[in-house]
Measured scan of single mutants.
Amino acid sequence: HAATELTPEQAAALKPYDRIVITGRFNAIGDAVSAVSRRADEEGAASFYVVDTSEFGNSGNWRVVADVYKA
């Protein structure tokens, strides 16, 4: 099962156990969220919340930071 994305309210009520950072070329924010979901799932997380997204220069590469939560 894939890790689910939390709302800001849900994330605020929970304590993350880790923070992950992924970088890559994403065509849309949805693609980045899917990549975070896969990584969170690999780490055994039940859910995640994207904290920050930023573009690296003009290369089209993105850096996505997310907190991950157990259950």
Rank of each mutant, 00 (worst) to 15 (best):
R63I: 14
L6T: 01
I20W: 08
I20M: 05
W62A: 02
A40Q: 02
A13M: 13
A35C: 09
T7C: 08
F48P: 02
Y49M: 05
Y49A: 05
I22C: 06
I22N: 00
A13N: 12
P16Q: 03
E43P: 01
G57C: 09
V65M: 05
G24S: 03
R25L: 08
A12Q: 10
E42P: 01
V65E: 06
F56I: 15
D18R: 14
A46H: 15
I22W: 00
P16N: 03
E5Q: 13
A3P: 14
G24Q: 02
A11T: 04
A46N: 12
A32S: 03
A71W: 14
T4A: 09
R39K: 11
G24P: 00
A3Q: 03
A32Y: 06
S47C: 13
G44I: 04
E43T: 12
V36K: 02
E55V: 12
A71V: 11
R25W: 13
A2L: 11
A45E: 01
A28I: 07
H1P: 09
A32Q: 03
A46T: 14
F26T: 00
F26R: 00
D41A: 15
A32P: 02
A3L: 08
A71T: 12
A2M: 13
T4V: 14
R19Y: 05
I29M: 12
S34E: 14
H1V: 08
S34P: 04
R38K: 13
A13I: 13
Y49K: 03
G57T: 07
D52C: 15
D18C: 15
L6V: 02
W62D: 00
I22V: 12
V50L: 10
R63F: 08
Y49W: 07
F26Y: 07
A71E: 13
S34H: 13
T7H: 05
D41Y: 15
I20L: 07
A12M: 11
G44P: 03
D41V: 15
S59Y: 08
A46L: 09
A2Y: 14
A66S: 02
T4I: 14
A2E: 09
H1K: 09
R25V: 10
S47K: 05
G60W: 05
Y49V: 09
A66I: 13
F56D: 14
Y69F: 11
V36M: 14
Q10R: 07
A71K: 11
A35N: 03
L14S: 09
V33D: 01
A35D: 03
A2G: 14
T4S: 09
W62Q: 03
V21P: 00
Y69M: 00
A45L: 05
I22R: 00
A28G: 15
Y17L: 03
P8I: 10
P16V: 03
G57I: 06
F56L: 14
S47Q: 08
N58D: 14
V64E: 01
A32I: 14
S37H: 08
A66W: 04
E55Q: 13
A71N: 11
V64M: 03
Q10E: 11
V33A: 05
T7V: 07
I22F: 03
V51K: 02
G60F: 04
D31A: 07
V65D: 01
P16W: 05
E9P: 06
D67M: 11
A2F: 14
H1Q: 10
G60C: 07
S34G: 09
A32V: 12
L6C: 05
S47H: 15
V21D: 02
G60K: 06
E43M: 15
V65G: 02
V64Y: 03
W62M: 09
D31W: 12
R19N: 00
N61E: 15
F48G: 00
V51F: 04
T53I: 15
A2D: 07
A2Q: 13
V36P: 04
R19S: 04
V50C: 05
T23V: 14
I29V: 11
R19V: 04
D31F: 08
G60I: 04
V36G: 00
V64C: 05
G30W: 12
V68R: 00
V68C: 05
A13T: 13
G57E: 10
V50Q: 02
S47G: 10
I29S: 06
A12P: 03
A28C: 13
S54Y: 15
R38E: 06
A11E: 01
V50Y: 01
S34V: 13
A71G: 11
S54G: 08
I29A: 08
A32H: 01
N58K: 10
